[in-house]
């Protein structure tokens, strides 16, 4: 057995495999397949201050390299989550995080404030990167001043681990991540979905109700790795790597690029027991490669030896 435990700053995880927000509900659905305690951590579907029914159908579409979605932050609202879902989390031992979304800074802060009373919660992941609603917070990723103010106010509101989930759709991811670090965030999640589109040429209609949606799955992995790599070299914040992970080898790539923890997203739709399966495979892979302590591999990637 390899030692799969990892650290995200001060916080320890029994293994790096977490489930990504929006791909694993609030827990019970995945717990019908396996014990959530086998995971390193769990990130809830995004919650907003008020309930949201989400976008019109069609909301999902398959691609050869992944999928598109335009769910539109459908969720029951933070108060119903606190009363109905959170009690079920109390007996879980895995690391538990709530993903928070909103359209104004006040919305985010109020969500964080209400979650502060939760008895069993390890941290908040602030989603400033949903591409599928007009005011889904993605503007915070574009304006560094707004982002700084938002992170500062969230930091003042919560004593829990504060993670900022960033969009890959920015000119310079390093400066965005640096703002999060400067304003007191504990970690960043990289990356959210990438805006994408698919067209049915017969009907000349887009395959999603909103035209453009969020692209996820194996096709975005190289983009995500590049972002993780760049930020890991330049910013002293621990990173949660996300993007198209569907094998233990994918996980190891993210760890080598500089992620301390990873999230499995779209693969949960393909394999309901994805999280459990990847933890087992990761243990086997580390054994095969002679990695005794996974955390020692974080950020150790090097460029190839050049011959010319």
């Amino acid at each position: 057995m390899a030692d799969l435990s990892v650290q995200l700053g001060e916080m320890s995880f029994c293994n790096p495999v977490c489930l990504a927000s929006g791909t694993a509900g609030y827990g019970p659905e995945v717990a019908s397949w396996y014990d959530l305690n086998e995971l390193g951590g769990f990130f809830s579907k995004a919650l907003t201050l008020e309930p949201r029914s989400g976008n019109a159908l069609p909301r999902v579409c398959e691609l050869p390299t992944g999928m598109l979605n335009t769910i539109g932050l459908a969720n029951p609202g933070v108060s119903r989550f606190i009363s109905e879902q959170l009690p079920g989390w109390e007996e879980l031992k895995t690391r538990l995080f709530v993903n928070v979304a909103g359209s104004t800074a006040d919305d985010y802060v109020e969500c964080c404030r209400r979650l502060e009373q939760a008895p069993r919660l390890d941290g908040l992941e602030i989603n400033v990167s949903c591409p599928n609603v007009k005011q889904g917070g993605i503007s915070f990723s574009a304006d560094l001043g707004d982002l700084a103010a938002l992170v500062r106010r969230c930091r003042e509101t919560t004593r829990r681990l504060l993670i900022i989930k960033l969009s890959p759709q920015v000119t310079d991811i390093v400066s965005v991540a640096q703002v999060c670090a400067d304003e007191g965030a504990d970690a960043i999640s990289l990356i959210n979905t990438i805006p994408g589109m698919s067209i049915d040429i017969g009907s000349r209609r887009t395959r999603l109700s909103t035209g453009i949606g969020g692209y996820s799955g194996p096709g975005i992995k190289p983009v995500a790795l590049a972002q993780v790599y760049r930020v890991a070299r330049a910013v002293s914040l621990p990173i949660i790597g996300i993007g198209g992970i569907s094998s233990a080898a994918d996980i190891l790539e993210f760890i080598l690029a500089g992620a301390s923890v990873i999230q499995v997203g779209t693969y949960n739709f393909v394999q309901p027991d994805a999280g459990r399966k990847l933890v087992k495979e990761l243990d086997q892979l580390c054994h095969q490669l002679g990695i005794e302590q996974l955390s020692s591999a974080v950020g150790t990637v090097e460029l190839p030896v050049t011959t010319a």
């Binding site: 791909t23 694993a24 509900g25 659905e29 995945v30 019908s32 397949w33 579907k45 989400g54 159908l57 069609p58 909301r59 999902v60 398959e62 999928m67 979605n69 769910i71 459908a74 949960n268 739709f269 309901p272």
Partner: peptide, 10 residues
């Protein structure tokens, strides 16, 4: 549907 078990909301 994408997931078939209640998590994707598609």
């Amino acid at each position: 549907m994408a997931c078939g078990y209640g998590v994707c909301m598609g």
